[in-house]
């Protein structure tokens, strides 16, 4: 069985790390999660008081961690170009702003985004593998991934096969992630668990373990198409999985909560959680991202409020 296999995992992160061999555990034995405990612990992170300068620094960090996202059927080249401009110039009235981390689009839009972002240092992330349902044959998913990478995607956001996962076919899920990782080449792989469809924290933990052992560079909560999307408790479960994985293998894995984070205050709570669970090494956009579209404007509004002293209105910020 898979649990007794030893495989060589190639590490393709920017951080200097050595090749390592580690045993693949039996995923049916992933730790069980205490739901009440996790919810209680997650709520504690919202009690920290972050004001004035530290808040401003936190907001800048949040802005710099955003994967500005548009994943709609009605996306056009023009919409993507506009979003790319917003990524490079979040709000020119405020001097000294960082850019966002990446633009997240469908594979067909990667070329447009890549060209629009040329020279800005902003990454292009592409969803792939029959996003958001993941209901497609493996070959098609691999071709989808290769298409995105060939067009210039720096990062690939894949979805796991939730149906197979629920049926207990963990080997299938594992192999699929490993195959996509191979198809990614140099691109970093984010694995979307779609926690809203997994149902329990136990399953979230198990899916996190499978994804990380199969080679994920990031684990991501949701597609944003299913409710509930990212919540603090579910993110905490995944952060703890990352921590345990790091202790066991010495390999860092990134985290991306996505969907439902639209307010600055909540984003700051997430930063607190990352710092207290994983530590400062993860507090940068190489290891932590927010998948969001409306969060950027709220962050900008809060920054303008700190600068001017008056509450802001959405009318004065670009529509994205």
């Amino acid at each position: 069985m898979i649990g007794s296999l030893l495989i060589l995992v190639k590490l393709k992160t920017d951080m200097p790390q050595t090749k390592s061999i580690f045993p693949i555990p039996d995923f049916t034995l992933s730790p069980r999660i205490d739901q009440v405990g996790v919810e209680e612990r997650a709520s504690r992170f919202t009690k920290r008081s972050i004001k004035k300068e530290s808040k401003l620094k936190g907001l800048k960090l949040v802005l710099n961690m955003i994967d500005l996202t548009t994943l709609e059927g009605k996306d056009t080249d023009g919409k993507v170009k506009q979003l790319c401009y917003k990524a490079m110039h979040p709000h020119d009235a405020l001097a000294g702003l960082p850019t966002v981390a990446a633009i997240c689009v469908y594979p067909t839009m990667v070329k447009v985004a890549k060209k629009a972002l040329e020279g800005s240092g902003i990454k292009v992330a592409s969803v792939a593998t029959a996003f958001p349902s993941g209901q497609a044959p493996k070959e098609i998913k691999i071709r989808d991934t290769k298409y995105a990478v060939a067009n210039g995607a720096d990062e690939v956001d894949m979805v796991i096969s939730r149906g197979k996962f629920h049926a207990g076919e963990y080997n299938f899920v594992f192999d699929e992630i490993a195959a996509i990782k191979e198809a990614c080449g140099e691109a970093r792989l984010k694995v979307i668990l779609e926690t809203g469809e997994l149902g329990t924290f136990d399953k979230v933990r198990r899916a996190s373990d499978i994804a990380m052992y199969a080679g994920a560079d990031f684990i991501k909560t949701s597609t944003g198409k299913i409710q509930p999307a990212a919540t603090m408790p579910v993110t905490l479960v995944m952060l703890e999985a990352i921590r345990d994985f790091y202790y066991k293998t010495g390999r860092m894995v990134g985290m991306k909560p996505a969907g439902g984070i639209s307010k600055s205050k909540l984003a700051l709570h997430y930063l607190v959680m990352v710092k207290e669970v994983l530590g400062e090494e993860w507090l940068n956009n190489h290891w932590f991202r927010f998948g969001a579209s409306s969060l950027a404007n709220d962050v900008l509004m809060q920054m303008m409020k700190e600068k001017t002293g008056v509450y802001q209105a959405a009318n004065y910020f670009s529509v994205d």
């Binding site: 008056v310 509450y311 802001q312 209105a313 959405a314 009318n315 004065y316």
Partner: peptide, 8 residues
């Protein structure tokens, strides 16, 4: 003052 300086 707040009633009158809120941008929204």
């Amino acid at each position: 003052p707040w009633f009158v300086d809120h941008m929204d």
